[in-house]
């Protein structure tokens, strides 16, 4: 009876939902623990400057947590590992170096893009050149999002690659299957909108669910190449 229940579809769905909730909460704890704790404290005006710097540690943990979540989901999907906490932490430490490199690169790219976006956004109605600049900036942002999504997958599936090669592969994957990339982007957008409207979704699924979609949508393609690479480079 119990065996039948564990094999049922309902059990698997709830089991997966539980895993995603745990991963989401752990991502929040890993990247937003300090701001969360800080928000609980009644701050005296003397320490208000802390509000400006409290998010800085997030830079060191957010991308590694996301990479770790992807790696954990990937491991579960491929049948390599079915634990959550321990695997998350192992993956966190294993991918930390490469994730930090990605964080730094993203930060370097994000600063000029943010500047470009704000400038062109305010001037876009004034001349055609500004409008073109605005459109180009938006396009560039979309391209970077596409590449970043696949970069996370590439570094988790194919370890030991040089970062430049990982970038090249991510770009290849992203634009070879442009429909898949758009689908993933749509999943992220939907999750973002729901998270904005519903705080429970934000806490329970906002990060892990779109990442699950990311892994699930790309699984067949990555798995095929992953299996071949594993066989050839044991």
């Amino acid at each position: 009876m119990l065996k039948k229940f564990f094999a049922s579809k309902l059990y698997r769905i709830f089991d997966y939902a539980m895993r995603l909730i745990l991963l989401n909460v752990m991502t929040f704890i890993a990247s937003l623990l300090l701001p969360l704790l800080w928000s609980l404290i009644e701050v005296s005006p003397t320490f208000e400057w802390v509000n400006d710097i409290i998010f800085i540690p997030m830079f060191f943990t957010l991308i590694p947590s996301i990479v770790s979540v992807v790696d954990t989901i990937r491991g579960y999907e491929l049948g390599l590992d079915d634990r959550v906490f321990k695997t998350f932490l192992i993956n966190f430490s294993k991918n930390y170096r490469v994730s930090m490199k990605i964080s730094v690169i993203l930060l370097i790219v994000a600063i000029p893009l943010y500047n470009s976006f704000t400038v062109f956004n305010s001037l876009k109605t004034q001349s055609i050149a500004n409008a073109i600049g605005y459109i180009l900036t938006i396009s560039l942002v979309v391209i970077i999002i596409f590449i970043t999504m696949h970069l996370i997958l590439v570094v988790t599936y194919f370890r030991d690659l040089r970062l430049i090669d990982a970038f090249k592969l991510a770009a290849t994957f992203a634009f070879k299957d442009i429909f898949g990339s758009i689908l993933i982007l749509a999943a992220f957008a939907v999750a973002l909108i729901i998270a904005y409207l519903n705080s429970w979704f934000l806490v329970l699924f906002s990060i892990s669910l779109p990442l699950y979609a990311l892994v699930k949508i790309t699984k067949s393609k990555y798995k095929r190449i992953y299996d071949r690479v594993e066989n050839n480079f044991k």
């Binding site: 030991d160 690659l161 040089r162 090669d165 090249k168 290849t172 994957f173 190449i225 050839n232």
Partner: peptide
């Protein structure tokens, strides 16, 4: 290690540009 990483990259790249896979896809 560097050589192994480059080999791995080249292998994946080659696999991705396989015309048969592309046609099937």
């Amino acid at each position: 290690l560097k050589k192994a990483a480059i080999d791995k990259y080249n292998y994946i790249k080659e696999d991705l540009s396989n015309p048969l896979h592309r046609a099937v896809k």
